[in-house]
């Protein structure tokens, strides 16, 4: 498809989704240097929060190196052009967190719900809109809903006041056809002035292909992360997607050389392990499981002598959704009990 001259907004996830593979321990100094690099490279929008959004600091998801307020307060004053966004999951964060973010200078709030539960976002979307913020409705795990179902959920969020709706492939499960099938009807159903976005994961290495399919289907906001730093096998790698956009004539406003330098010089060195499609991340994409379960499943597998792949597949069977990290150790414990019972039966 000819996409020459299409203007899109790239939204950087390195300092939010990238918190997952960093166990939410990115330091304030790293946040500052990476965000300044992104700003200088022309990235217009940068997300900064705990990986699970405002208020995510918890036993369940992990305690971060600093509070949301400290991270945002450190990054926002340094930005010359870029605006900063914050993620908020109703049920985890509240309107109080939203107002804190607004006061500290956050420009854009992204209110995220599971793809069938948009009506829990009414309080938050309405408040963000009332505050005059760029207000995004973010439908997670969108592979678990039909195109018609997503249309309904997207329209709910639009009716509360969201000026942009995201179809989010949290599990990195979708293939380009899945993306087109879902985004086109949503694009057609929304008001022309409501923006449409896509957030991809690279578990089946479809981040770039899916993002391109999303632009073809009418999306004008695309989430990327430098080096792909994000949950599972990471997000759509920004430095590659910018190169692809340049080839297609899609205008992003991001400098290809500078963003590559941010990736290689600033982000790659902070990785704790290679964020890539290893066996667990592929399983997440293949089984359609929430991306940030990866490290939790690895830890539980180690603790209880199980295979992380088996745990992830079991979580998929049990239809666990985003935020149910508490069920990972629970599932591992139940699997370990079943294994021990079997062993005992064989022994007797």
């Amino acid at each position: 498809m000819d996409l020459k001259g299409r203007k899109i907004t790239l939204h950087d996830m390195t300092l939010r989704d990238g918190m997952h593979p960093k166990r939410h321990k990115i330091t304030i100094e790293q946040m500052k240097s990476i965000s300044q690099g992104l700003d200088a490279a022309g990235v217009p929008l940068i997300e900064v929060t705990h990986g699970d959004g405002l208020g995510g600091a918890s036993v369940n998801y992990g305690f971060p190196a600093a509070s949301d307020e400290e991270y945002l307060g450190a990054v926002i004053p340094l930005m010359k052009h870029a605006k900063v966004s914050a993620l908020l999951l109703p049920g985890i964060g509240t309107v109080d967190d939203l107002l804190m973010a607004k006061d500290i200078g956050v420009h854009c709030i992204r209110v995220a719900t599971h793809c069938t539960e948009a009506d829990v976002s009414e309080q938050h979307i309405k408040m963000a809109r009332k505050q005059g913020m760029d207000t995004v409705g973010f439908l997670m795990m969108s592979h678990m809903n039909s195109p018609e179902g997503l249309v309904k959920q997207a329209k709910l969020m639009e009716s509360y006041g969201a000026n942009c709706i995201y179809i989010t492939d949290s599990a990195g499960y979708m293939l380009p056809d899945d993306v087109r099938e879902r985004l086109k009807p949503v694009r057609d159903a929304l008001k022309p002035e409501t923006e449409l976005g896509f957030h991809g994961h690279h578990n089946l290495a479809m981040g770039i292909a899916n993002s391109l399919a999303a632009v073809e289907a009418g999306a004008n906001r695309i989430d990327c992360a430098t080096t792909g730093l994000g949950a599972g096998a990471g997000n759509t790698p920004m430095e590659i997607f910018v190169a692809v956009c340049n080839r297609k004539g899609i205008e992003t406003g991001v400098d290809l050389w500078k963003i590559q330098d941010v990736a290689d010089d600033l982000v790659l060195p902070i990785m704790d392990f290679p964020v890539r499609a290893g066996r667990d991340a592929i399983t997440i994409g293949y089984a359609g499981v929430y991306g940030s379960f990866l490290l939790f499943a690895k830890r539980a597998a180690e603790k209880y002598g199980l295979s992380s792949r088996d745990i992830l597949v079991e979580l998929g069977k049990r239809k666990m959704i985003g935020g149910q990290e508490d069920m990972i150790e629970d599932t591992a414990l139940t699997m370990a009990k079943a294994r021990d019972a079997k062993k005992a039966a064989v022994a007797s």
């Binding site: 049920g91 109080d96 599971h114 309080q123 239809k319 959704i321 935020g323």
Partner: peptide
């Protein structure tokens, strides 16, 4: 939903006896 998380967290402190409380709610459509 915010009142749910706030009230639950507050009861974890006031009735549960934790110095600080937090509550998370997940709605699963399975």
């Amino acid at each position: 939903i915010d009142e749910f998380t706030r009230t639950t967290a507050s009861a974890v402190e006031k009735v549960g006896g934790a110095k600080k409380g937090k509550a998370i709610v997940i709605i699963n459509p399975a």
